[in-house]
């Protein structure tokens, strides 16, 4: 995606987005709610038409060749759009047809997707009777029915129990191991840190930082950081002081975190020293813009 803009009325959902996803990687699109991640995903499937910019997916230029691109990608949306009146097997079979799988291959594809999502035992049940986690697995299985080269996962684990999130994580890792490219949007930092080979941090419709999680941490937060606790007034004072000294900080709830602490020895107030993580980078880069 190159110089992509998309506006809804007065809202600039995507505002000069530049994004290149290398093949074969799990790529994380990390950003707060409203950063434009979902809009970017919908532009990639041709369901939103960009106002300006060049978009290429799997060598096809969008929106003109979007149908060809969609044939080779699988999409798992943020909110369920299952036909919940159908039984699990039929949900998968309908999409095997929509992806134009030849009739001989369809039954096998459905069985494979059922196995992948661990839903074999529920194949004959209506989708509406599945739990939230199972429905999400069915959504992912539906997106994988035609063994796509590119998989788009829009907030795949939002609103799920920790156990189910971890199950889905191993599913996502197995996708990449089989050679698919995964583009996953999330606002869970841990998810990006655990799964993504590379991460783009989005804020207000554009990418504000891009790299491997380790690179991003080193570049924007250093090796170590120091958390300082204190009253809100005290922290405000400290922050103003740090800003005037040019020390990078970020707000972290009831404390103030000094980034690049390893490079600033002796100049920091007393606090708890720890390793820098992606959350430090995320809040540093997007914190001020969160709705």
């Amino acid at each position: 995606m190159c110089g992509v803009f998309k506006r809804f009325g007065a809202v600039r959902a995507v505002d000069g987005l530049e994004l290149t996803v290398p093949a074969g990687l799990c790529y994380g699109l990390l950003g707060p709610n409203g950063a434009g991640k979902s809009t970017a995903m919908r532009i990639l499937t041709g369901q939103a038409i960009a106002d300006a910019g060049a978009i290429e997916v799997l060598g096809y230029s969008l929106p003109e060749q979007s149908k060809l691109a969609r044939a080779r990608m699988g999409v798992c949306p943020q909110e369920s759009n299952l036909d919940v009146d159908l039984c699990v097997r039929d949900v998968l079979d309908v999409f095997a047809r929509l992806y134009r799988l030849p009739s001989r291959a369809r039954a096998d594809a459905v069985d494979r997707a059922l196995a992948l999502s661990g839903l074999q035992a529920r194949a004959g049940d209506r989708a509406v009777t599945l739990s939230g986690g199972m429905q999400r697995r069915l959504l992912i299985a539906r997106a994988l029915i035609h063994e796509p080269e590119l998989v788009l996962l829009d907030e795949p684990t939002v609103g799920l129990d920790p156990q189910i999130r971890q199950e889905l994580w191993s599913l996502i890792v197995s996708l990449r191991e089989r050679g698919a490219t995964v583009l996953m949007s999330t606002h869970y930092i841990e998810e990006a840190e655990r799964l993504a080979d590379r991460v783009a941090i989005m804020s207000a419709g554009r990418v504000v930082a891009e790299g491997t999680p380790a690179e991003l941490i080193r570049r924007h937060a250093g090796r170590e950081v120091v958390d300082v606790d204190g009253s809100a007034a005290h922290l405000r004072e400290l922050r103003a002081l740090a800003d005037s000294d040019g020390l990078p900080t970020r707000q972290s709830g009831p404390s103030l975190t000094y980034l690049h602490a390893d490079a600033l020895d002796g100049r920091l107030p007393a606090g708890v020293r720890r390793s820098a993580n992606l959350e430090d980078v995320f809040v540093r880069l997007t914190g001020d813009y969160v709705e």
Partner: peptide, 18 residues
């Protein structure tokens, strides 16, 4: 129902269907 509530059309449009 399919467009607005169940959003099945949305799902179909993510597949190679116009």
């Amino acid at each position: 129902y399919k467009r607005r509530y169940q959003r099945v059309y949305d799902a179909m449009l993510a597949a190679p269907v116009d």
